[in-house]
């Protein structure tokens, strides 16, 4: 009887993998990790089109610097999306943290205090998002859409939309504009630190397990004794702090903070995470995937500039790449 499923479905060969290196296996692997395939194609294409310019060390460092904040925020966004939520307020948070942090740095001269205030802004916005979503029971899309407006408005109000110029070399060099070991841009150094921490958190910590379970099936997680509300709030707080950190890095790199900083950034970040294989429905996704996704977005933007295309073209191509990647990805 075909309506009734055979009871011995466990013989299903699904997920029993064969690791020999054949064309077919490599192909399947790339289909599962669509961002990696996209990265390879993007790099090959721009290398071919621009000669050595694209692959030069100088340009690689550029891509690294440009992608730093996307990668940092994509790491946080991975956790938020794995828990089956989304945060649209990240670009606004980035801007408010940059503004307030810079204001404190310029008025007090203390880099430490500035950074502290900036990160605190992120923490508060994240906490507010988390509480609205869990205790207020507002879908995260709406809660953070509202916060996006509120926080951007606050950011504009700090200086009545005027930029803050920062003359504090210590602040420049510790976050965005210096380098470590003589060759590694400091923003890349911070990005690596964030990547390591979030990777361990999501993959090896108790919190990580709870995030996956909450996103995979909130009801079941709750029935298992997972404090799902607390888990979701934590992901939003981490996201807020990482957005704020990104804002400080940007301000430090530009030696200035503008209230309009980062507008539209959430699209880059969400695109990177989705491209990296994280499921919008929750329960599935990795930091490494998001890293590669972010690199694809950064390489695309950079390569198109090298080839002399306008920012409009960047937007168009970025949109197409996302649609193609999702279409092409192996669906379950």
């Amino acid at each position: 009887m075909r309506k009734i499923k055979n009871d011995n479905t466990c013989d299903d060969p699904q997920d029993v993998q064969d690791y020999t290196l054949t064309v077919r296996n490599v192909w399947n692997y790339l289909r599962d990790n669509i961002a990696l395939l996209a990265l390879i194609i993007v790099v090959l294409f721009f290398t071919a089109a621009s000669g050595t310019k694209f692959l030069s060390f100088q340009n690689m460092a550029n891509i690294g610097r440009q992608s730093a904040v996307i990668i940092i925020m994509a790491s946080g966004m991975t956790m938020v999306i794995v828990s089956a939520n989304i945060d649209l307020s990240i670009a606004s948070t980035l801007s408010l943290a940059a503004m307030l942090g810079s204001l404190v740095v310029t008025t007090t001269g203390s880099t430490l205090l500035g950074v502290f205030i900036g990160l605190a802004v992120g923490l508060i916005v994240g906490l507010a998002n988390g509480l609205l979503v869990t205790k207020g029971k507002i879908p995260s899309f709406l809660a953070t859409l509202g916060m996006m407006g509120v926080v951007r408005g606050l950011s504009m109000m700090v200086t009545s939309t005027k930029p803050i110029v920062i003359y504090e070399p210590r602040f420049w060099y510790t976050l965005g504009d210096g380098s470590v070991f003589g060759f590694l841009p400091i923003s890349i150094f911070w990005t690596i630190i964030v990547l390591i921490i979030t990777f361990i958190l999501l993959k090896y910590s108790v919190l990580g397990r709870h995030i996956y379970a909450t996103g995979g099936n909130k009801e079941a997680a709750k029935f298992t004794g997972v404090k799902t509300d607390r888990t979701i709030i934590t992901t939003f707080v981490i996201m807020g702090v990482l957005s704020a950190f990104s804002g400080l890095i940007l301000a430090s790199r530009m030696h200035a903070a503008r209230p309009g900083t980062g507008e539209g950034m959430e699209m880059n970040v969400i695109a990177a995470v989705i491209l990296g294989g994280t499921s919008l429905f929750g329960g599935k996704g990795t930091i490494i995937g998001s890293l590669i996704g972010a690199l694809v977005i950064a390489a695309l933007n950079n390569g198109l500039i090298i080839l002399g295309y306008s920012t409009h073209m960047q937007m168009l191509v970025r949109g197409l790449v996302i649609i193609l990647a999702v279409l092409f990805a192996k669906d379950e």
């Binding site: 910590s205 397990r209 379970a213 009801e219 079941a220 997680a221 004794g225 329960g283 599935k284 379950e332």
Partner: peptide, 23 residues
């Protein structure tokens, strides 16, 4: 809907109640 995270593995599902005990 209440007992399992269907898209996760046997291992992850069985581990879920005890993750906090094994840290």
């Amino acid at each position: 809907s209440q007992g399992l995270v269907l898209s996760h593995s046997v291992e992850e599902n069985i581990c879920l109640p005890i993750v906090s005990d094994y840290k």
